[in-house]
Computed example of a mutant assay.
Amino acid sequence: MEEPQRRIRAAYTESTITVYQAYRPEIGRPAVREGRFPSSWKRDRMTWIKPSFLWMMYRCGWGTKEGQETVLAVEISRDGFEWALRHACLSSYAPAVHPDRASWQRRLKRAPTRVQWDPERDLHLQPLPYRSLQLGLSGEAARQYADEWTVSIRDVTPLAHEIRTLVSSGDLESATRLLPPERPYPVADESLAHLHG
């Protein structure tokens, strides 16, 4: 079956969804140890969460880029995630969604969350012809993410390194078996209508 151009793909349960971020060890390690983001994690800055494991691997270079050496799997409540989607604005102007550029800019300024649709990645981190969600959280949304929505935080850096080693050695079958089991996230089309630009 052909993939739709834009779709949220994620590992999720009845009540939670897993998203990924990568940080310096000084942030990542305490977050894993405490199961929540430390006070040094800036709640007043925009933070981007990615439900796609391979998109995160592309972004952080399998946990090798400076400042992104600790890859976190953050399990958050689906209620929080869906609130973020409902309150989001596209990060770039889309004539099919916004009446004009000024309306989009006003909405973007007010929105606590923003959405980008970026090309999904394969095991070689090459772009695929369809896109996955990246969700930016600021202000109220970033605070809720850190202090209310987060259920657990795991360090998946060893997993990232193991998959990368398998890919480098050409063992794509074993690498694929280790990937988190992502599937289409069940969100009503009308909930995403304002984000399909």
Rank of each mutant, 00 (worst) to 15 (best):
F81Q: 01
P186D: 10
R78N: 04
I49C: 10
L85P: 00
H196Q: 13
V115H: 01
W62K: 00
A22M: 02
M57H: 01
G28M: 01
G80A: 03
P30H: 02
G67K: 01
T176Q: 15
H124M: 14
W48I: 09
R9P: 07
Y12T: 02
E162H: 15
H161D: 03
H194G: 08
T157R: 00
Q5S: 12
G170L: 01
L178K: 14
Q126P: 06
P127G: 06
R6E: 10
P127F: 05
P25N: 00
Y12K: 01
E82Y: 05
D189M: 06
W83T: 07
A160I: 00
R143I: 13
E75K: 06
R6K: 14
A142H: 08
V71N: 02
L179H: 10
L172Q: 04
F53C: 12
D100Q: 08
Y20A: 02
R114G: 12
S169A: 15
W41R: 03
G61F: 03
P127T: 03
V74T: 06
Q116L: 12
D155N: 09
P99E: 11
G170H: 00
T165C: 12
H194A: 11
R36K: 15
V32I: 06
V32E: 06
R177A: 15
W117C: 03
F37T: 03
P129Y: 11
S191D: 13
S191G: 09
I153L: 10
Y23N: 04
I27G: 04
E120M: 12
S174N: 11
K65F: 07
Q134N: 13
A102P: 05
P25Q: 01
R154W: 14
G28A: 02
R177Y: 13
I27C: 08
A111I: 07
R6I: 09
Q126F: 09
W149H: 09
Y130P: 00
R183A: 15
H194F: 08
A142W: 02
Q126V: 09
Y130F: 14
